[in-house]
Deep mutational scan, measured.
Amino acid sequence: TTLTVNTQTYTFTSEEEAREFARRYGAKTIRKTNGTWEVHG
């Protein structure tokens, strides 16, 4: 199964959650914005 996250942004309140998600789905960018963490595919 392949998950494609081209134009979607996922927002997390903790860096740990964001990094775990990025690691699991191979997202390329993690960015902190206004106190939340954004993961970009």
Rank of each mutant, 00 (worst) to 15 (best):
T1H: 12
T1P: 15
T1Q: 12
T1S: 12
T1M: 11
T1N: 13
T1Y: 05
T2R: 14
T2K: 12
T2H: 14
T2W: 04
T2V: 09
T2E: 14
T2P: 11
T2M: 11
T2G: 14
T2N: 13
T2A: 11
L3S: 14
L3Y: 04
L3H: 14
L3Q: 14
L3W: 03
L3G: 14
L3N: 14
L3R: 13
L3D: 13
L3F: 05
T4W: 04
T4G: 14
T4L: 11
T4A: 12
T4R: 08
T4F: 05
T4D: 14
V5Q: 13
V5N: 12
V5L: 08
V5Y: 06
V5D: 12
V5W: 06
V5I: 09
V5E: 12
V5K: 12
V5P: 13
V5C: 15
N6E: 13
N6D: 13
N6V: 11
N6K: 06
N6T: 11
N6R: 03
N6Q: 09
N6H: 10
N6L: 12
T7G: 10
T7L: 10
T7Y: 12
T7R: 05
T7S: 10
T7D: 12
Q8R: 07
Q8M: 11
Q8Y: 10
Q8N: 10
Q8A: 10
Q8G: 11
Q8F: 09
Q8T: 11
Q8K: 11
Q8I: 12
Q8C: 15
T9C: 15
T9G: 06
T9V: 15
T9Y: 13
T9M: 11
T9N: 08
T9D: 05
T9H: 10
T9W: 13
Y10P: 04
Y10V: 07
Y10S: 03
Y10L: 06
Y10D: 02
Y10T: 05
T11R: 08
T11I: 14
T11V: 12
T11Y: 13
T11G: 03
T11E: 07
T11D: 02
T11W: 10
T11F: 12
T11N: 06
F12D: 00
F12Y: 00
F12A: 00
F12M: 00
F12R: 00
F12H: 00
F12G: 00
F12K: 00
F12I: 00
F12T: 01
T13K: 09
T13D: 12
T13L: 09
T13M: 09
T13Q: 09
T13G: 07
T13V: 07
T13N: 09
T13S: 10
T13I: 08
T13R: 05
T13A: 11
T13P: 06
T13F: 11
S14E: 05
S14R: 03
S14V: 04
S14G: 02
S14Y: 03
S14P: 00
S14C: 08
S14F: 02
S14A: 03
S14M: 03
S14T: 11
S14L: 03
E15C: 09
E15Q: 04
E15Y: 14
E15W: 11
E15V: 05
E15K: 02
E15S: 02
E15H: 03
E15I: 05
E15P: 02
E15F: 12
E15A: 05
E15G: 02
E16H: 07
E16F: 07
E16N: 06
E16Y: 07
E16S: 08
E16M: 07
E16T: 07
E17N: 03
E17D: 08
E17P: 00
E17Q: 06
E17W: 02
E17K: 05
E17S: 05
E17Y: 02
E17I: 04
E17G: 02
E17R: 03
E17T: 03
A18E: 00
A18S: 00
A18D: 00
A18N: 00
A18K: 00
R19A: 06
R19V: 09
R19T: 07
R19M: 11
R19E: 12
R19G: 03
R19W: 11
R19N: 10
R19K: 09
R19C: 15
R19S: 04
E20A: 07
E20L: 05
E20F: 03
E20K: 06
E20I: 05
E20R: 06
E20S: 05
E20N: 06
E20T: 02
F21A: 05
F21E: 01
F21M: 04
F21Q: 02
F21H: 06
F21T: 01
F21V: 03
A22E: 04
A22P: 00
A22L: 05
A22H: 02
A22S: 02
A22C: 12
A22G: 03
R23H: 10
R23A: 10
R23K: 13
R23G: 07
R23D: 13
R23F: 06
R23W: 05
R23L: 08
R23V: 07
R23I: 07
R23S: 09
R23T: 08
R24T: 06
R24C: 10
R24M: 10
R24F: 06
R24D: 05
R24H: 07
R24G: 03
R24A: 06
R24V: 08
R24K: 13
R24E: 08
Y25K: 04
Y25H: 14
Y25P: 00
Y25L: 12
Y25T: 14
Y25M: 14
Y25C: 15
Y25D: 02
Y25R: 06
Y25W: 09
Y25N: 09
G26L: 04
G26W: 03
G26T: 02
G26R: 05
G26S: 04
G26M: 04
G26A: 05
G26Y: 03
G26Q: 05
A27N: 05
A27D: 04
A27K: 05
A27I: 14
A27W: 15
A27Y: 15
A27E: 04
A27Q: 06
A27S: 07
A27F: 15
K28H: 15
K28V: 15
K28N: 09
K28A: 12
K28T: 13
K28L: 12
K28I: 14
K28D: 10
K28W: 06
T29Y: 13
T29W: 11
T29G: 05
T29K: 05
T29P: 08
T29M: 14
T29F: 12
T29D: 08
T29S: 09
I30H: 05
I30Y: 05
I30K: 02
I30L: 05
I30W: 02
I30F: 04
I30D: 02
I30T: 06
I30M: 04
R31K: 11
R31Y: 10
R31I: 13
R31Q: 11
R31D: 05
R31L: 11
R31W: 06
R31M: 12
R31A: 09
K32N: 11
K32L: 13
K32P: 04
K32G: 08
K32D: 04
K32V: 09
T33I: 14
T33H: 10
T33E: 13
T33A: 13
T33N: 12
T33K: 10
T33W: 07
T33V: 14
T33Y: 07
T33P: 10
N34P: 02
N34L: 04
N34T: 03
N34H: 03
N34I: 02
N34Q: 04
N34Y: 01
N34D: 13
G35M: 03
G35E: 06
G35Q: 03
G35P: 01
T36V: 14
T36P: 01
T36E: 09
T36L: 14
T36R: 08
T36I: 14
T36K: 11
T36D: 06
T36W: 07
W37S: 00
W37G: 00
W37F: 04
W37A: 01
W37Q: 00
W37T: 01
W37R: 00
W37P: 00
E38N: 01
E38C: 10
E38W: 04
E38L: 07
E38H: 03
E38F: 05
E38A: 04
E38R: 01
E38I: 10
E38T: 06
E38G: 02
V39E: 01
V39P: 00
V39G: 01
V39L: 02
V39T: 02
V39A: 02
V39N: 00
V39K: 01
V39R: 00
V39I: 04
V39H: 01
H40I: 15
H40V: 15
H40L: 15
H40R: 10
H40G: 10
H40D: 13
H40T: 15
H40P: 07
H40E: 15
H40Y: 14
H40M: 15
G41T: 15
G41K: 08
G41Y: 13
G41W: 15
G41P: 11
G41C: 15
G41E: 06
G41M: 15
G41Q: 09
